Computed example of a mutant assay.
Amino acid sequence: MAYEQEAGAVRLSAIQEQDLMAWRERQVELCRRDSKDRLSPRTANGSIAAWWAVFGKSSLWSQFGLTWFPGLDLRKLPTKKVRFRVLVPLQKLIDKANLELKELDPDCYDLFLLAVALGLRRKEAEMLLWSAFCFDREILDLKASTLYGYKTYDSEGEVKIYSDKVLGHFRSRYENRTSDFVLNSDRPTGEDKNYSYYRCEPTSDRLAAWLRSHGVVCAKPIQYLRGAGGNQVRIDNDIFAAKCFLRHSQIQTTIEFYSEVDTSYSTTLSF
């Protein structure tokens, strides 16, 4: 409330374009720091996008008949798009996990399946409760709680468990559960959904190391599993099914970042 009063007391005339440009440079500098020391909770472009979401031409300021607003000339920094590409044949990775993780490290195996077979993000998997499983309906019912808020509204909802083996595995794990959470951890969850550390970091670290040892050499190997699962759903079905599996708000996100480019296409046309 105090922040709202303080922000509301600032006159538009007091905000100059150079102030916004300096703010952008500070965001860039913050995001260049090592992640352990980073003060900004988002990237520089994320901060600019957040500004536009509130003050863009089609948003709040136009309702007051204003013809100009500070920051309208702000543009996102150019970024290199990183498209998804298959690093290891997915079936080979699944077969290896069945042999090396299922019995020896069941927590890692659970996280592996949640990412690749159900499309969950790392934090979503860590905060997943057994109550989300509807075994009779063969779905996960993802809902925000006081412990965790999902990335977007589209991230919530029902996730189909399309594999009988995956369904059977989690049914068995549910019958022998020792916690309300699917993934076991000795770490506390935090008092609210804004806590910043990962609850199951030791499990995630072991799975990331295992994935890298099997050829998944990238910055975020667990996120790669989610992308690989979505890409396979696209191959077996279509891009719309992949969007549903990955729970994206915009299909453009699925197309640009989670679909492997295939240049070996052909047609039945005769020339």
Rank of each mutant, 00 (worst) to 15 (best):
E6L: 08
G8P: 10
M21D: 14
A22G: 03
W23A: 13
R24W: 02
R24T: 07
C31F: 09
R33D: 08
S35T: 11
K36A: 14
K36Y: 06
R38Y: 00
G46M: 10
G46L: 02
A49W: 02
S59K: 15
L66S: 01
L72R: 11
K76Y: 02
K80Q: 15
K80A: 13
K80H: 13
R83G: 11
F84L: 06
N98G: 11
P106R: 06
P106F: 01
D107C: 03
D110Q: 13
L111C: 14
L114G: 06
A115C: 14
L118D: 06
K123Y: 01
K123I: 11
L128F: 07
L129R: 14
W130S: 05
F133R: 03
F133W: 02
D136H: 04
D136W: 00
R137S: 08
L142F: 01
A144H: 01
K151F: 09
D154N: 13
K160G: 05
Y162K: 13
R173I: 04
R177H: 07
D180L: 10
P188E: 07
P188C: 06
N194I: 01
N194R: 12
Y195C: 06
S196E: 14
Y197L: 11
P202R: 06
S204E: 11
S213R: 13
H214T: 02
V217M: 08
V217G: 00
C218S: 00
A219C: 04
K220G: 03
P221V: 03
P221M: 01
L225G: 08
A228K: 08
N231V: 07
N231T: 09
N231E: 14
I235G: 00
A241L: 07
L246I: 08
H248D: 08
S249I: 03
Q250D: 15
I251M: 05
I251H: 00
T253C: 04
F257M: 05
Y258T: 06
E260N: 05
V261T: 13
T263F: 13
T263C: 10
T263D: 10
Y265P: 00
T267G: 08
